[in-house]
Amino acid sequence: MKAFETYHPIVLFAYFASVIGLSMFYMHPVYLLITCIGAITLNLLLNRKSFISGLKFFLPMFFIAAIINPLISHDGEIILFYIDYNPITLEAIVYGFAMSIMICSVIFWFGCYNVVMTSDKFLYLFGKVSPALALVISLTLRLVPRFKHQITVISHAQKTIGMDISAGNPWQRVKSGIRIISILITWALENAIETADSMKARGYGLKNRSTFSLFVFEKRDGFLLGIILTLLFINILGSYFGVTTYYFYPTFTELTVTPISIGLYISYASLLVIPIVIEIREAIKWRSLKYNM
């Protein structure tokens, strides 16, 4: 039911670039809350398993990072208590948690990015900007599994002549391991030259060569891209006029509730929920289709 992924790579990239950029940018508590909830919801929809297993790594990081801040920073007006004559302030504690929320949200958004922007989409986009470098990256990605396969082939062959990495004392094992790597590199380099010559023979680097890709920019992609860019623009405009600035030091800025600020909160939230809405709409569509059958 992954509906969001089926959009054109440029739309997906624009979405993640704006969301991650804005998430890093805002320290306003309402914005932090929105981005954190948005990131967690989308992660639960897209990659529930790896997100939950990753939490046991991120939660301790979250708390440690939050606790360190009041120990380092003694700015702020509301002093709670003293440790070694150093004031521990409420502002510093809250700021520590706010920062942790921001960093964790950014990492969570990257988690969604990793699921949605698969390497083929990334390379398709990157190839438009820098074809030679995209070719290097895509060859690298292809070579890694190939090398892994070749390592097993080489180590089987080495086993037959008594150079087994799983037998003998540690020194012998290391020696046969290095031997396998050395053989792999010789093979890989010779093989690379052969591949390169074959590419050349097929006309690599000549003019008028076309490329093929499966991605088609449809009307709905244009529509969504328009929405994303409009919302991004609105948010940048809002921060330009200082509606979203928030200070923790020397003491908390008061939260203003004006029509403009509420409008901005809504625009930010609607940018973030785009993929969630798309996923849910698709799920409902499927359910009703099943129902009618």
Partner: peptide, 13 residues
């Protein structure tokens, strides 16, 4: 092509 391939091989390693 040869330069591209050599860089790709070293990165892959």
């Amino acid at each position: 092509a040869r330069e591209i391939l050599t860089i790709a091989v070293m990165s892959a390693i």
